[in-house]
Amino acid sequence: MNVIWAIAIVVLKELYRRKDFYVLFVLTALITLTMGSVNFFNDHSIVRYLKEFCLLLIWISSLVIAIATAARQIPAERENRTIFPLLAKPVSRAQLILGKFSGCWLACGVCLLVFYFFFGVIAASREHQWPVANYFQALALHWFALGVLVAVTLLGSIVFAAPSSNGTIIFVIAVGILAIGRHLNKVALQLAEPGRSIVYAIYYLIPHLELFDVRDLIIHDLPLVPWHIWALALLYAAAYTAFFLGGAWLLFRRRPLTT
């Protein structure tokens, strides 16, 4: 456990040494504040459009941070040859995968805390309320969705040759699932066989990341997701994360380390 934690801390430290998070946070803040400064019919209590823009930017930024951070972990270790002393500590390959995952996931959590705090401040400045439970649910769901993505990206970093191609492919898949994952069953029903079965199979196999996107509930001040449903969603994400991490370990354990 200590070994995993030590690797995770190194990844976490990498996050604040690199500029990705700062750039994305400043961009998100700048765009949100600029949008907030627009005057619509002299009404300064209009807030939902601002929440929508801010949450969209937070989602885009978090996807970029999660995928970019996870995609370079193992390839960078192999390229710099630091993976040899690391595995000679002794650190097992499973511990390395888990450590890298934990570090990336924790880093995403820290970023999300900052982003959601900023979002909360912006929303509260307009609507003078702070629905902490709603924000907590949204943040936790968002964080677990990023966990799935980090795990997939780690798996991809073992399969694909370059971090750039891995990052791009995972990003496109993630955006695709977020945009149309919920509707694949409707698309399948309109297709003839064998297309219907193929699309339906994809629908059941993919991790439904859109379940974790509760932006609309936050934007429109809708009630909380029932807590047991929320917990089930987290369990669903945890299961997919474990599956992808298991896959990454299976591929990595016999993979030669030299490039």
Partner: peptide
């Protein structure tokens, strides 16, 4: 709802 994912997913959007 067309399936369990659809039924479950309806808790997460309006």
């Amino acid at each position: 709802p067309k399936d369990w994912i659809d039924r479950f997913g309806r808790h997460f959007y309006p």
